[in-house]
């Protein structure tokens, strides 16, 4: 009659914070009067290592910051930037808030999904790319815009999106990263 809670297979596999990640977090915590404040940037560091936020590192992080494990999970699921499950190596996030919507984001998204051959939020077969929608990226004057793993691309028309998807198919690093 009563069912077990949802199983989270992917999130529960063996994942450990690397030494470099741990060090980065330790340095980060020093900047704040309260260690708990470091959690948002710390989770970005964790996500940088794995591409998403697995479960074990959350427990480790809780210990490092001296907070409850539950508090880490509450934060991870509240903020949309944290991926609770793996995404493509390159996560293409296309804005569809009002200004981008007015300049064709719906068509751009459909075009991209067709080109990639996936559904929304689905990872391509080779694991390289996934396409998602995202709310206002604050680049409305250069609409439509998108992000490839947090790096902006502006004034993206379907042709440019084709180029982007083709490049990402074989990219090893994010080609749109500008320091």
């Amino acid at each position: 009659m009563i069912e077990k809670m949802d199983k989270l297979e992917i999130r529960s596999q063996e994942y450990k914070l690397s030494e470099a990640t741990r060090q980065e977090i330790v340095e980060l915590v020093k900047k704040y009067p309260s260690s708990r404040s470091a959690i948002l940037p710390a989770l970005h560091i964790v996500q940088a290592q794995f591409g998403f936020v697995p479960v074990e590192p959350m427990a480790e992080l809780a210990e490092m910051l001296g907070i409850l494990k539950g508090d880490v999970e509450q934060v991870v699921t509240f903020y949309r930037m944290y991926n609770q499950n793996p995404v493509g190596k390159f996560h293409v996030k296309i804005c569809d808030s009002i200004s981008c919507y007015l300049r064709g984001s719906d068509e751009l998204i459909q075009h991209g999904l067709q080109r990639l051959g996936t559904r929304l939020n689905e990872v391509s077969g080779d694991g390289q790319v996934s396409i998602s929608k995202i709310e206002c990226l604050a680049a409305c004057g250069a609409a439509p815009c998108l992000q490839v793993n947090d790096e902006y691309m502006y004034n993206v028309q379907p042709e440019q999106l084709d180029e982007i998807l083709d490049t990402l198919k074989t990219a090893k690093e994010n080609p749109y990263y500008i320091p």
Binding site: K69, G70, D71, E73, T77, F78, R80
Partner: peptide, 10 residues
């Protein structure tokens, strides 16, 4: 003031 129930998602 210890591990307990939490709110998930938003």
């Amino acid at each position: 003031q210890d591990e307990g129930l939490i709110i998930l998602e938003r």
